[in-house]
């Protein structure tokens, strides 16, 4: 449905997107996930036509759209700042794309779209009388009312507070199940990406580090960055010495069955893959945070912080030395 081929974009001397290629299937929902400045929003804006790539090609629904303005692309878009026109009523906001297309029977379509987001009752309200969550639902209705080929969402939940964010996330998932619209969803929040998307593209420094379904991404990250960003894994730099991994002046005993490529430079360990209170390694506790269902224990490893999730009853004190076992880990070059 959407395909990007070798897309490049720089702002002045700074490259933002570096040779990015991506295929999105019809009806698929792809999340572009990454930290701020990774190029995810720029990529979305290039698809929308709000930015133009310096090189590379963009196809939408089989047609080459590179160089076409946004109004010619037949898309819908939801912005982080809602972008609801404050001088129009809710219904007028939603009607606008239909009006531009000269569609007949607009009133019924507007009512239908407002029904999708359960805002029928507020059709005649002015935007200043609406909450942030309601505004973003208006934006969803406006973006979907004209049956766009693709719905683009640019951090749609980032301006909302936590409870609303979960509500609206569920709402987006329900809308998608109902309408089957192809969606591209930009976020820096791994939970949103994993919960909503069919596939997640993790971006860093203008390239996709890994594109995979959520479970695969979580269970077998291809790079230390993906492991750290998606699973919150600890990433330690060092080298293999015999069977052990040496990080600074620290020697860590690894699981016996771990594959040990000679060129390994990064050790990746998830917090939940560490056993605290038993094992071959002895590490100094920096802090121990009670989280309710578990305790997060923070260790010092040659000046680096390593987080472990332990059962709630384990409460080591800062300054103590505790035995630790690495149950599972990954080595990357």
């Amino acid at each position: 449905m959407v395909s990007l081929e070798q897309v490049h974009k720089s702002y002045g001397e700074t490259p933002v997107v570096k040779g990015l290629s991506l295929e999105v299937a019809r009806g698929e929902m792809i999340a572009l996930l990454g930290p701020s400045g990774c190029g995810k929003t720029t990529t979305l804006r290039i698809i929308a036509g709000l930015e133009h790539a310096d090189a590379g090609r963009v196809h939408i629904d089989g047609a080459l759209v590179t160089g076409q303005p946004p109004e010619a692309r037949g898309l819908g878009m939801v912005f982080q700042s809602y972008a609801i026109w404050p001088h129009k009523t809710v219904a007028e906001n939603v009607e606008y794309p239909l009006k531009l297309k000269g569609v007949a029977g607009r009133e019924a379509l507007v009512r239908q779209a407002l029904g999708w987001v359960r805002l029928d009752a507020l059709a005649q309200r002015m935007p200043h009388a609406l909450s942030g969550g309601q505004l973003q639902r208006v934006a969803l209705a406006r973006a979907l009312v004209a049956s766009p080929k693709v719905l683009l969402l640019d951090e749609p939940l980032s301006n909302l507070d936590a409870a609303l964010r979960e509500d609206l996330r569920a709402e987006i998932a329900a809308l998608r199940a109902r309408l089957g619209t192809t969606m591209i969803y930009v976020t820096h929040d791994q939970n949103e990406a994993l919960a909503l998307a069919d596939r997640v593209a993790v971006m860093n420094h203008g390239v996709i580090e890994q594109l995979a379904p959520p479970r695969e991404l979580y269970e077998s990250p291809k790079t230390p960055f993906v492991a750290a960003f998606v699973g919150g894994a600890n990433v330690l730099e060092g080298r293999l010495d015999g069977a052990d991994f040496v990080c600074g002046d620290r020697r860590l005993v690894l699981p016996a069955d771990l594959e040990r490529p000679a060129a390994a430079r990064h050790l990746v360990i998830r917090p939940e893959a560490l056993t605290v209170g038993d094992g071959p390694n002895e590490l100094g506790v920096v802090a121990s945070l009670f989280l309710g269902h578990s305790t997060e224990v923070r260790f010092d490893v040659a000046g680096h912080l390593m987080r472990a999730l332990a059962p709630a009853h384990v409460r080591p004190k800062p300054g103590e030395n505790v035995r630790v076992r690495i149950d599972r880990a990954q080595l990357f070059s």
Partner: peptide
């Protein structure tokens, strides 16, 4: 004026 107000109109199908 938030630039996204104009961008939302562009994506909705309006020329510049």
């Amino acid at each position: 004026v938030d630039p996204s107000l104009a961008e939302a109109a562009r994506v909705s199908g309006a020329g510049p």
